[in-house]
Design a protein around this nucleic acid. Structure first.
Lengths: 235, 235
DNA sequence: TGGTCGCTTCGGTGGGCGCCGACTGTCGGC
DNA sequence: GCCGACAGTCGGCGCCCACCGAAGCGACCA
């Protein structure tokens, strides 16, 4: 029966994520950066031989790709579609613990699509509106990938945001958004913006998920008033 | 560390599908019907005690729901979003190179790829041709995700299709097709279209699987004649 | 009330695999 | 060449879990 064969294939794929250590690794890699084996071993709390075998398994399975540089082994997610799939799964998985009241579930899903964090930066409607507004005002340059302009640098400084350079991570980066299917802003600058907004109280975390509650102060980021109004509706 | 906790949650969810027997069960339930425990045991080729424990696990995990009637236990997928998630996973999971070891197996696979159901809507060549044709005729709007236009609404009414709104379920939604690797149409409207086509006899179920037999009347859906001819070939 | 059917519970068994320590391989710097 | 840092391999341990047979339980039928 062809059905059972397909079942074996699906099971073999799912088994890649069916281990806590591997799942932790994959979620950590959702930021799009490349990590070394030792970093991931520390993060997951296992020894280096163990993480080495897990990474072999994930690379062979096509979930991750690796780049060898000297004595380092950098691994990252295989591509944007892998990241999307993982984010989708991660959004579904913890629903197990939630009480399935349909009204609250609907409003939660709404809040999730409106504004949330993707690892350490914004995603959802808020996530894609941010680079739109920044591009409109000449803060981002898209001629070669995406980069922060001099004006963008000044804008950050005026907001009182200092972006501490972190090894191997670009300042700005584009990342495909799961719900909007359009790129949102990632990278160190996006992370700093997210952290700043949280610290200033422009947005706050809604407990029990990655969704964010938005306040009117969020327009300090330079978003159009129509977008701000949409983000504020029913919240 | 919240990261490792989320990793454990994701792993716990993935573990539901990480067994060949459970994956086979889930794929079989993609036809949208309710199966008994004994039927699934025969399909998966395991004993009844074994399938009983697997079903407990899947129901507890929220992937399936069950209805007890007398001495029978009927299980089915928890909902449309569960079905779409499964189809998406089956689309990305690498399939072993299938060898057509028999003529009947080849023709079955052919019928499966041509037209079938995915939970409660169309999939396969028919499944992806439908949104293509609807977009061509201005019935769908893709500017922000996918949505039904006013013309699309009128088209449905002219066909005599009433879509009963279901709380929390979008009218139209895109869902990755397993065989075509392109999105087909899901959601309440797609379900209504499928139900209508079955009731009108435009398509009919081929016993023993999810594949559909297509008649010429299917062009009532507005598909191009070339697609209709392809769907009708050898069937 | 006894018989059949569908399903579940309970022990027991075997295999798979996640984990580590110890060792080896490889690269870069002094 | 030697050494330190990063990574891979090997062998072994222990746990988890998929599986089954036997027995138990409730539902339906006579």
């Amino acid at each position: 029966m062809t059905t059972s064969l397909e079942g074996q294939d699906l099971a073999a794929w799912a088994r890649m994520l069916a281990d806590g250590t591997r799942a932790t690794v994959c979620l950590a890699l959702l930021d799009g950066r490349a990590w070394t084996a030792t970093e991931l071993a520390q993060l997951a709390g296992v020894s280096r031989p163990t993480i080495s075998e897990h990474l072999n398994l994930l690379v062979d399975g096509g979930l991750l790709t690796e780049v060898r540089q000297g004595r380092h082994r950098y691994v990252k997610l295989a591509g944007p579609e892998t990241a999307e799939l993982l984010e989708g799964l991660a959004a579904v998985a913890p629903r197990r613990t939630e009480v399935a009241n349909s009204l609250s579930a609907a409003s939660k899903r709404d809040a999730f699509a409106r504004a949330r964090t993707c690892y350490d930066h914004f995603a959802g409607k808020l996530g894609v509106a941010l680079p739109d507004a920044m591009t409109e005002r000449g803060l981002l340059d898209w001629t070669e990938g995406v980069a922060l302009t001099a004006e963008g640098q000044r804008w950050l400084e005026n907001l009182g945001i200092v972006v501490e350079p972190r090894r191997g991570r670009p300042a700005v980066r584009s990342c495909l958004d799961v719900t909007e299917r359009r790129p949102h802003l990632a990278g160190a600058v996006a992370a700093a913006l997210c952290e700043h907004a949280l610290k200033q109280g422009w947005v706050s975390r809604i407990v029990g998920g990655r969704a964010l509650k938005v306040t009117g102060s969020v327009q300090t980021l330079g978003l159009p008033t129509s977008v701000v109004r949409e983000l504020l509706s029913r919240s």
